[in-house]
Amino acid sequence: MIEVEGLARHFRVSHRDAGLGSSLKALLHRRYELVRAVDDVSFRIDDGEVVGFLGPNGAGKTTTLKCLAGLLYPTHGTVRVLGFTPNERRAEFLSRITFVMGQRNQLFWDLPTIESLRVNQAIYRIGDTQFKESLDELVDLLGLEPLLTKQVRMLSLGERMRCELAAGLLHRPDVLFLDEPTLGLDVRGQGAVRSFIAEYNQRHGATVLLTSHYMADVTSLAKRVVLIDHGVLRYDGDLADLVEQAAPFRLVTVTLSDPVESGVFAGYGEVIESDGTHAVMRVPRAATRDVASRLLAELPVVDVSIEEPSIEDTMRTVFDQRATDAVSVDAARE
């Protein structure tokens, strides 16, 4: 179980302008800014849950994960993971978690992958039988067989990511912190990593907290999402509910046998595009069925379809809305 109460992590960040003069000036006097990367965030995740951790760049997602994994001391607040305080970094705690970072290399660069796995076997005190079982499972799920004896620096990004996952999961952790695990991978690579995470969660009942900029990662793995922006928690709940709140409409696409005047479609919903015989409209969710019935009754309809807006568009709407709100609040404060 993960419990976060009033978590805050602030950083003191130095600034310097470009140029030689600024470099010399910075030697004597440096400008600092206090950055509130995470500010008063609280949530709780039960054992075995898969939760998507969402937010735009710089929102505070990775900082939160680092606090949960014990890499950072919180400025304020408390964090408990599996009953441990992460920043105490007890061996029993570290043996039960993993933190896979998409852009970080945990493997020994100049040596074959199997050497890194062997070192992890010793460090995590994995017995020979469990090591073999775990390795066989990972080789099978991630298709590692041809990669084990390859030098890490010779692996492609996708291959390396699969090896990183294997190194991170060899000790069968109970909690997985995954920060952009599919970053930079092609569609096939993303799919392989997603399937693997889902399979691991099912087989071992592990708790997964996942950040990703690829919405497909989140929609395929997590029912629940935690939304963070400017270090502040904005939403915690069902992904479907968030979509409904953020996008209270559906897209209705209609194709006609005979052209009608373009203004006709405005009577059914907000027109996004139209060309006389074809139109896409945004229609309030509650009115969708009624609009579809009217279209069929009143116009020469050949085809009509009703779709949910894409999750990417919805999240963009959410983040844009939050940004506007934040600006408004700041303006009101001034």
């Binding site: 014990g70 890499l71 061996a91 570290l94 970072m101 970080r104 290399n105 945990q106 992890n120 995590y124």
Partner: peptide, 10 residues
């Protein structure tokens, strides 16, 4: 890079 080392129980 220290982060990767800090995550291990050694």
């Amino acid at each position: 890079e220290l982060s990767s080392l800090l995550l291990r129980p050694v």
